[in-house]
Simulated assay, not measured.
Amino acid sequence: MLNHRFVEDVCADRLPPDVFQRYVAYEGAFVETAIAIFAYAVARAPDMEASRWMIGVLDALANEQIPYFEERYQTLNITQLADLPPQAAAFDNGMHELAKQGDFLDIATAMFAAEWMYWSWSKRAITCQISNPDLKTWIALHVDDTFAAQAMWLKQAIDRYGNASDLSRLSTIFAKVTELEIAFHHAPYEEADPS
């Protein structure tokens, strides 16, 4: 994922505007799913510390992320999608189903995989020339202290609440989410160039 075409295009300042617009639409749709995912995490949290942290995440998603996307939709003239394309829908549905069926550790691992991936490639991208101000803002959101703290908290929660018997299952979840993320980042290109 760290060498995905999307990341390489961002870092080379050549991400096509239409690809970015579709990406924003898919990401905005996923934030609504993420609210449901973290709600499952709150319900299954092992203690009050974890509950409080996840409630804070829900607040940020609902009151910071959703308004961000609403503003981007207006700024970039993006229409909210009734249906996601297959690869974006697979990510959205796969993450939701994992949270619906999984326990707290499963959910923490799934979101850790996604957030660690974003934080990792965004740290590289933020050092590059990015001429699209909306894209630059998007990258900056994923390297700020709040996002980094969220990724680190999830990592530490897996260590704190998990044990050796969870390792195989959680590793499988991490790998699956990474595969879904790779496909998700293919999606805005596929719609532009289905060949």
Rank of each mutant, 00 (worst) to 15 (best):
A125P: 03
I78P: 09
F6L: 14
S171A: 12
R72V: 05
E64I: 02
S168P: 00
A175S: 13
L2H: 15
N63P: 00
P194G: 01
L15G: 07
A36F: 13
A110F: 02
D9F: 04
T127N: 13
F38G: 00
M117L: 15
L58T: 02
T172I: 08
R124H: 14
M1R: 11
Y161S: 02
Q101A: 14
Q21C: 14
A90M: 09
D193L: 11
W53F: 15
S171N: 12
P17C: 02
Q87N: 11
T33E: 08
P46T: 04
W116L: 08
E8K: 15
L76W: 05
E190F: 03
R44W: 04
A39G: 15
F184R: 04
T109Y: 00
M95S: 10
F69E: 08
I37K: 07
T146S: 11
P46A: 08
L84T: 07
A50W: 01
K123R: 15
F91H: 08
E115N: 09
A157W: 07
A89V: 04
P46Y: 06
M111T: 13
S168D: 11
P85I: 01
Y189F: 11
S168H: 13
L141T: 08
P194Y: 01
T33H: 05
L76C: 04
L167T: 11
I182G: 10
F30V: 04
M152C: 07
E190K: 12
E191M: 08
A36G: 13
E190A: 13
L135T: 04
P67T: 02
I107T: 06
S165K: 10
A183K: 13
N77V: 10
E32S: 12
A90P: 01
V31I: 15
L170C: 02
I37L: 05
H186T: 06
G28N: 09
K155L: 13
V57A: 09
V177I: 12
T109R: 01
D103N: 15
D166V: 00
L98D: 04
E179H: 08
A39F: 02
T172D: 09
F30N: 14
A149T: 10
N3T: 12
A60I: 02
A113W: 05
D47F: 02
A62H: 01
T33L: 01
G56S: 10
Q87P: 00
F184Y: 11
E64C: 02
D13W: 07
V19L: 06
A148P: 00
L98G: 02
Y161E: 01
I107H: 07
Q80Y: 03
A62E: 08
I107G: 06
N163H: 12
L84W: 02
A157Y: 05
A62C: 05
T172E: 13
T79W: 02
Q65H: 11
M95N: 03
W116S: 14
T33W: 00
V24I: 15
H4I: 07
F6W: 12
A41Q: 06
P86V: 09
D83C: 04
S195Y: 07
D103C: 06
Y68D: 09
D159M: 12
A25K: 09
W116Y: 11
Y26M: 12
T127I: 03
H185P: 01
L135F: 05
R14M: 07
K123H: 14
A41E: 10
A88I: 03
W119D: 14
S120D: 11
D92S: 15
A187G: 10
K155E: 10
Q101N: 13
F6P: 02
Y23W: 14
W119V: 12
L167I: 07
H4V: 06
